[in-house]
């Protein structure tokens, strides 16, 4: 039997890797977007684990909606990234410091 705590620790690991990745890769916008997806993956795994162990299907329904919203978010994020790239010519975050602090 897969224990609940194993899955929870696994998704906490993914969450930490995602947050750490954002922290470490602040200059690289694409990696930041990928780390946001990692955080959402951790959340989804959490919901599915709780749905299994609480014998309640609502957790899986929530995952459904989170996947939908994450797809929409990825689309909008990439559109905005594209706009930034067109305006600036590069994605190096060093160039993105017109707005200070």
């Amino acid at each position: 039997m897969v224990e609940l705590i194993d899955v929870l620790i696994f998704s906490a690991l993914l969450l930490m890797i995602g947050i750490g990745g954002i922290f470490l890769n602040r200059k690289n916008l694409i990696i930041i977007l990928l780390c946001i997806e990692l955080i959402l993956l951790a959340v989804n795994t959490n919901f599915i684990a709780f749905a299994y162990f609480l014998n309640d299907l609502n957790g899986q329904i929530f995952v459904f909606f989170i996947l939908t919203v994450a797809a929409a978010e990825a689309a909008i994020g990439l559109a905005i990234l594209l706009l930034l790239f067109r305006n600036k010519g590069s994605l190096a975050v060093d160039d993105i410091s017109e707005l200070k602090g």
């Binding site: 954002i22 916008l29 977007l33 946001i36 305006n87 993105i96 707005l99």
Partner: peptide
């Protein structure tokens, strides 16, 4: 205007 896209990227992330 790039300042608009820049603000949007920061807000989005």
């Amino acid at each position: 205007h790039f300042i608009s896209s820049e603000a949007s990227v920061k807000y989005f992330v």
